[in-house]
Design a protein around this nucleic acid. Sequence first.
DNA 1: CCCTTCGGTCTCCAATGTAGACCAGGTCTC
DNA 2: GAGACCTGGTCTACATTGGAGACCGAAGGG
Lengths: 154, 154
Amino acid sequence: MTTEEAAQTGAGRHQEQDRAQGCGPGCGQEQELDVFAQLCPSREMFAELADKWSMLILMSLSACGPQRFSELQRAVGGVSRKMLTQSLRHLERSGLVLRTVFPETPPRVVYDLLPLGRELAELVAPLGRWTERRALQMLAAREEFDAAHAGPAQ
Amino acid sequence: MTTEEAAQTGAGRHQEQDRAQGCGPGCGQEQELDVFAQLCPSREMFAELADKWSMLILMSLSACGPQRFSELQRAVGGVSRKMLTQSLRHLERSGLVLRTVFPETPPRVVYDLLPLGRELAELVAPLGRWTERRALQMLAAREEFDAAHAGPAQ
DNA sequence: CCCTTCGGTCTCCAATGTAGACCAGGTCTC
DNA sequence: GAGACCTGGTCTACATTGGAGACCGAAGGG
């Protein structure tokens, strides 16, 4: 095995083969969970949370408090009913969000953060704020990049 | 307009119509950027960053330092070459990651975080760690949810 | 009686992601 | 010197995902 190559640039700290492949059989109670490992349950959770819509929903619930379905749809610009439903179900299923149905007519359904969801929302919110703060800078970098990569070809 | 309804549960703080629709024309220098607004440039950036692969790449580069293409592919379990290339290009284009080609044979390409990327990685890493810490708890919530929603139907 | 509202679901169709073949072009082996 | 590597991609098929819009059921209004 050519481990020397990996050492050159300092890689390969996560997934030392055992974690990457294992983590299914035998990683029940110990914190052998590793988001980098394809088969690890934590990766599955991460994939569900590291998503545009889920994050925006969490941010909206965190910033504006409990909201009903249609409010969320208005708050999270551009989300389709299908994706909103799906993301909310995921969040509900994982114990991050509470769904409360008021059996009125027309039906009223209110979503709110559970403690676990609030915890996560507080990690996600900074990410949204950072993006807003740095968006113009990144946009500028893009233009520079595009100029540098489309221009010199001529 | 039925604004009273929105007020009931306390929604609609972001995107007061002007921000949601505008933000394209006329929001150049002011921080009118809003990730919740579908057409806002910051939303576009957010959508690119709030992604499984981009986040895992940032986390890997942050945790293990500069890495070459194939190292990243091994580190980020399950990523396809196509998605790895695409995500890295996005990150490079936005000024988060530096791509360095060493014209040796076989070719060697090393990716590293730029200051902007390091900043973001430091917000993303806690999210990964949180997921690992809470994964089992969320998994348990799932089972409970599934039991409560599949069982009673019978 | 029909129309509207709410919170979805269902059905398409377009876009996105994955798997795997291919490629350049230099080295190593035979 | 003819293959068989190696890397860092790209290209091509195919499966999965996401979006747009129709539909729904029960209550209420005109």
